[in-house]
Design a binder for these strands. Structure first.
Length: 112
DNA sequence: AGTATGACAGTCA
DNA sequence: CTGACTGCCATAC
């Protein structure tokens, strides 16, 4: 394959650093990478994260806290099950108490 | 080099 | 309030 590493690698590393019971959004990751408009790129990177089983992509949701790409996981509610396994309540594909579970890399990785 | 896609976000109707 | 389109950035073909 080609050297597509770069944006993807950054996304992977950030997602990997998401602690247990926490979630983040594409926009935040994109913003952390310096391209807040490339939120779609983040999602696409996570799609490729399938080759990186160390990337808890199930902890990454959209701005509304919705499990947008759960269908891309396993075609089932696997993503939701994983989140619930982390004490994260999910209803109708949306994370409950999302703002409380929200993990901000800009704060956690920059202020630490 | 150009076109098409992508798990989004934001704005308009 | 709900639905649809455009915009933006990067990768793949």
């Amino acid at each position: 394959m080609m050297k597509e590493e770069g944006f993807f690698e950054k996304v992977y590393e950030i997602v990997r650093q998401i602690p247990y019971g926490r979630v983040t959004t594409y926009g935040v990751i994109a913003n952390f990478l310096g391209t807040p408009r490339s939120a779609r790129m983040v999602g696409w990177a996570l799609n490729n994260s399938g080759m990186d089983n160390s990337v808890p992509a199930h902890r990454v949701v959209n701005k509304n806290g919705i499990l947008t790409g759960k269908h891309y996981f396993n075609g089932t509610n696997l993503m939701q099950q994983l989140l619930e396994n982390e004490d994260i309540k999910v209803e109708d594909n949306q994370i409950i108490d999302f703002e409380n579970k929200f993990w901000n890399p800009l704060k956690e990785l920059d202020s630490q």
